[in-house]
Simulated scan of single mutants.
Amino acid sequence: MSQPAQTGILPCQSIEALIEQGAIASATPWDADQVQPASLDLRLGRRAWRVRASFLPGAHRVEDRVRDVAMHQIDLSGGAVLEKGCVYIAELQEGLRLPSGVQARANPKSSTGRVDVFVRLLTDHGGRFDDVAEGYSGPLYLEIAPQTFSVLVRPGTRLNQLRLKAGEPPVLETRDVGVDLTGDIVGFRGRRHAGVVDLDHVDGHDPRDFWEPLTARRGELLLDPGEFYILASKEAVEIPVDQAAEMTPIDPSVGEFRVHYAGFFDPGFGTAEAGAVGSRGVLEVRSHETPFLLEDGQTVARLVYQPLITRPARLYGEGGSHYQRQGLKLSKHFRPWG
């Protein structure tokens, strides 16, 4: 099986070539929009398990390890509610038979992070969450832990995405990301006792039932421990057409909070070529053990830029996107505020 000659992130046409070669397989026909400019959306399968503890497979297969911690099995075929505060393992429809020299990394989709559903990819014999070893051959599973809202899922629901890499791409640049606390509404805080979010129902929920709008005083916002916030970046975010980026948490010494569960930015996000100058990054923020006072412009995350092996055949947002040209914005599941 052929492998890329360069070092870098694989664009959509390379992902499609791997699908044609059988290096990426699916239990069902592929969705037309499943391959993104520099990533692949992954879909839930039919089976999931409520588990009493998270785990790493280590020397084991995931399904063998699930037997040790499973409380009960869930059939997702007719739709199933995953309760907040619980941990689940679900099989994915996609599997891998990667060629030598190709590895992968997973991240939650932006819509998943914005409803505070914590997800991590698992592979057989894997020693790390979300990282897929070079040449891995086997099934894929997803750990799912809703934090603020219970969610309704079914086979085909897309909660995470896979970025494939040839070798170990170099870091081209890192940029600090500050938080914007100006404007009439500076963010939203999730309501603890809201209803269920159907993760396949776009524009299907009244945001007032799930979110509390926030204002800042003197350019400051107090984060309460254990609460979940949606904020926006101070700076416009632009991803060059021959690069991709991942937003990573800041060093813990900068502040006691976690930022951005969903970290992938595809090539073309926020660019003039894709018609999206001025797009902001949306920040998913959770404070830890102590209250924390954020100031306008304060650094809360970092963008890490890496090269693609070649320009992608299509750019982010060219076929339409919920998040291109965005400012402060809730996930696609909610109607516009007001």
Rank of each mutant, 00 (worst) to 15 (best):
V66Y: 03
R67N: 07
V69N: 05
V69A: 03
M71H: 05
Q73D: 15
Q73N: 05
Q73V: 11
I74R: 00
D75S: 12
D75E: 11
S77N: 08
G78A: 15
G79I: 08
A80Q: 14
A80G: 09
A80V: 12
V81S: 07
L82R: 09
K84F: 04
K84C: 12
G85S: 08
G85M: 10
C86V: 04
C86H: 15
Y88V: 04
Y88D: 11
I89P: 03
A90E: 06
E91A: 04
E91I: 00
L92C: 10
L92N: 05
Q93W: 01
Q93S: 01
Q93N: 09
E94K: 04
E94H: 00
G95D: 04
G95C: 09
G95F: 04
L96A: 11
L96C: 06
R97Q: 08
R97K: 09
R97E: 06
L98W: 01
L98Y: 04
S100R: 13
G101A: 00
V102C: 00
V102N: 06
A104Y: 03
A104R: 02
R105H: 12
A106D: 01
N107Q: 11
N107C: 10
P108L: 08
P108M: 10
P108S: 09
K109S: 01
K109W: 06
S111I: 00
S111K: 14
G113Q: 01
R114W: 07
R114H: 13
V115P: 02
D116P: 00
D116C: 05
D116E: 02
V117A: 07
V117H: 01
F118G: 01
V119W: 13
R120T: 06
R120N: 15
R120M: 03
L122D: 02
H125N: 13
H125A: 14
H125K: 15
G126W: 14
G126I: 09
F129G: 02
F129Y: 15
D131F: 13
D131G: 05
V132H: 09
A133L: 02
